[in-house]
């Protein structure tokens, strides 16, 4: 069942929430690779929401809707910012961008999760990670 949590724009709060979701994923029996992926993607999404979305404004909140079940984890992170166009973020792996210090968060989220999508406004990201087939087989 999905659980909704609201935190202030504070990186420490974000870190605590990410830890909590990691514990949930572990208690659902996901392997270390999946837990690493969920944790990394959630942390990147929370940093984006707090830093770029809400621009660190303490009066703005970040809402996280998390449904971590035995077969998949679905996590939505919503900020109160104006949103952005994800297609406008340059590819950090192009030669000309390799030495730019920023712009890798979304790429890592996409690399580690099975699905990453943004709402039209660009202030909410939905990330899905499914239990890999080999983990299901190992359990049965």
């Amino acid at each position: 069942m999905a659980k909704t949590m609201v935190i202030p724009s504070d990186l420490n709060e974000g870190r605590k929430l990410a830890e909590m979701l990691l514990c949930q994923a572990r208690s659902c029996g996901y392997g270390e690779d999946v837990c690493f992926a969920i944790s990394l993607a959630v942390e990147e999404a929370l940093i984006n929401a707090i830093k770029h979305g809400n621009r660190g404004d303490a009066s703005k909140k970040v809402t996280v809707v998390a449904d971590v079940g035995p077969e998949l984890a679905r996590i939505v992170v919503v900020d109160e910012g104006g949103g952005f166009d994800p297609s406008s973020v340059p590819d950090p792996t192009l030669d000309e961008n390799l030495e730019k210090p920023s712009g890798r968060g979304i790429m890592l989220m996409r690399a580690y999760m099975d699905e990453v999508s943004f709402n039209r406004q660009g202030n909410a990201v939905t990330m899905i990670k499914r239990r890999p087939a080999e983990e299901s087989k190992a359990e049965s």
Partner: peptide, 14 residues
């Protein structure tokens, strides 16, 4: 565990 911000720090250091 490392975030993309930490990668950014390493690039600046480099």
């Amino acid at each position: 565990h490392m975030s993309s911000s930490a990668l950014g720090m390493l690039i600046t250091l480099h």
